[in-house]
Amino acid sequence: MIRQFFIRPNPFAISPARKIFSYSLLIFWTIVTLLPFYWLVVTAFKLPIDVSTGPKYVPYVDYKPDTHAFDDLLFSDVAGNFVTRPYINTIVVASGSSALALLIGSTAAYALTRFEYRPKPGLVLTLALSVGLGAYLYVQGLSMILSGVVAIAVYALIAQTIGRRFKGSLGNSDIAFWLVSQRMLPPVAVIVPIYVMYQNLGLLNTRLGLIVAYTAVNLPLVVWFMRDYFQAIPIELEESAFIDGASQYQVLWRIVMPLAAPGLIATGIIVLIFAWNEYTLALFLTGADTQTMPILVAAQNATRGPQWWSISLLVLMMVAPIVLLSALLERFIASGILLGAVKG
């Protein structure tokens, strides 16, 4: 079996049997992928009764297509900017946050592959303890400045005495693990504290607030994936650039980033999709003006049961731009030639 799945350099080497085998698997999975999408498309044009009286497959043959979902959501009197406003919000928030996450996340990933960081575990533990102490004091009614001072004092004291004496130190992989561990807690568990924090900072119901939140949530992904891509880039190229007098920034921007472009694009698409589709944070941190599309989709399940036609339409509307974008960018992802050429 495994024989079928590796890469042969010579296109003519694919035997007909293997071709048939490959195509049948590919076509099978294409059907598995596209059937639900087909169902979305036909459902968007169905009347409630066409949905509820058994499977109807082909418009005009099985049932008469109707545009009532379009009318209700997009063109009716009360529709107004019911869809357009969340749509624009989604575009702004998702693209803003994924660009930001990609920028600062990939520089961090680069730093983690090229520099060595050695935070002392004792110092980190002490830091965590003092932050906890400060927070506790603040909650207990101490003023913010006073609890901050106490926390810093305790930190300095412990760090100077025993914190530094621990053998060994943490490394880059521990920093990376810490970053990714931030994704482990279910968002519902922290949403109320985040809400309170945003309220105090005036970030509630702003696009900026959502962009900041999504950037922080997506950063670990960018760091982890880009680390692997940067690792695959041979360091010799950079070294020769340094010899030519380039600064660290120039090397990163002019040499490393272009080489990692396929990885950047693949990662970028993924974080864009995550930000595009995020629900829990969006629900709580937005108000009427900044609601995003996933909330609108979820809202179609109200007291009358799910409005299948509206859900289908909204999902299709949400997917369309990302599909176009991926189709445009696919050639860059696929052209791992860049990486391959360097390695080879």
């Binding site: 309220q199 509630l204 399940n301």
Partner: peptide, 23 residues
């Protein structure tokens, strides 16, 4: 008229009022 998904209405009202956001 501001709307949120049905399943989250109860918490949204409580959170808004309890934290003094009062939107």
């Amino acid at each position: 008229v501001v709307t949120v998904p049905f399943a989250d209405l109860y918490q949204t009202i409580l959170t808004d009022a309890a934290t003094g956001t009062n939107s």
